[in-house]
Simulated scan of single mutants.
Amino acid sequence: MVSAQLHLGVAIDGAGYHPAAWRISAVEPAALFTAGHYLRYAKLAEAASLDFVTLDDSLALQPGGEGVVRGRLDALLTLSAIAPVTSRIGLVPTVTTTHTEPFHVSTSVATLDYASRGRAGVLAVPSLTAAEAAHFARRPAPSPEDGDAETAEVLEVSTRLWDSWEDDAIVRDAATGRFIDRDKLHYVDFEGRFFSVKGPSITPRPPQGHPVTAVYGDSPHARAADVVVTRADHLDAVRATAARHPGAKVLATVSIVLAETEQGARDRQRELDALMPFEPAGLSFTGTPAQLAAELPRWAAETGVAGFHLRPAVLPDDLDLLAGEVVPALRAAGAFRSGYAGTTLREHLGLGVAVNQYQGA
């Protein structure tokens, strides 16, 4: 038995993380542009009691030309659409923090938290290419350093805006005609390098108080988030990221190719790479579900991460094996919970209650 239980999230992007996945998946390519496609995988992850699903997004088309899936649905809107028909799984869309306004990011994520009844998160990423900047023609692409610093400001402003309504600001007193207690709404008066935001928000404080915030671990501003996802491709670098962020839940990205036999997994990997060679970001695993169930706790013990962000190569194939065989094996080893203990994403991740910085001010 292991000493700690892992946190597990899974990516449900397109036909899978591998750019050739759409060519061997049983899923019809047209389904990739339907909410039902993503609902299917969110429900599968929920049945396995995984902490959350992520859905990638960008202001640019996927790179790779005609051989890859091009085009995407808006991640936050898609997860908002499936939120009412899921019950426990956390929903974490990627949201671009460049060429957007933190006021809009804050209210959109708060709305997802209401739609999901407290299961929202946000993976905040900057937009750094000239092609993306050209879509808006308002500003040049930022440097990586400025993009990260701006992302940190977006997260700070979002948190302040979520707190700008106290939890009991809505009184709904029909007899007096008083819907809100105006004294419990607060200006945030944020003045930063990139933004000046007065507030308060137009959306009441979300069910979680603060929806879960996440960033990738190569950002120097990762301290601004609840969850840090590292895409380091070797254990020493993963360990270094975990050591740099002791106050956050650090998760390591692992791209997975699974089969019932090790040879079968290698054959699947070769088939995918023959169609389109590809090196995924983060750690990689090719093998059986039992081998992955043994490897994940070992990697966590060696690096100090709290868990993993898993990226199936092909959907639904690798997610089916993850949910149906890897998770039960982890449970049998004491490395994963038997079911959900709470109802919110913050509870799943053990983040505790979000304190309102303006309460009583």
Rank of each mutant, 00 (worst) to 15 (best):
A4E: 14
A4F: 09
P19R: 01
R23S: 09
R23Q: 12
A30G: 09
A42W: 08
K43E: 09
K43R: 13
E46H: 02
A48C: 11
L55R: 07
D57E: 12
L61Q: 13
Q62Y: 04
E66N: 04
G71W: 07
L77I: 15
S80L: 13
A81N: 07
T86L: 02
S87T: 15
R88G: 02
R88P: 00
I89Y: 00
G90N: 02
P93V: 15
T97F: 00
T97E: 07
H99F: 15
T100Y: 04
S106Q: 10
S116Q: 10
G121Q: 08
T129E: 14
A133Y: 03
A133S: 10
F136R: 02
P140F: 08
P140I: 14
S143R: 07
P144K: 11
E145G: 08
G147M: 10
D148A: 13
T151K: 03
L155W: 03
T159P: 00
A169R: 12
V171K: 00
A175E: 11
T176F: 00
R178V: 14
I180G: 01
K184S: 11
F190L: 10
E191K: 12
S196H: 11
V197W: 02
Y216D: 07
G217N: 09
D218L: 09
R223L: 09
V238P: 01
A240C: 06
T241G: 01
A243E: 15
H245L: 14
A259D: 04
E260L: 15
E260K: 04
E262W: 02
R270G: 00
E271L: 14
E271N: 12
A274E: 13
M276W: 05
F285W: 04
A300H: 04
A301T: 14
G304A: 12
H309A: 11
P312G: 10
A323L: 14
E325L: 15
V327T: 06
A333S: 13
A333D: 10
A333W: 06
F336L: 12
T343M: 01
L345N: 01
G352P: 02
A354L: 10
Y358G: 03
G360C: 10
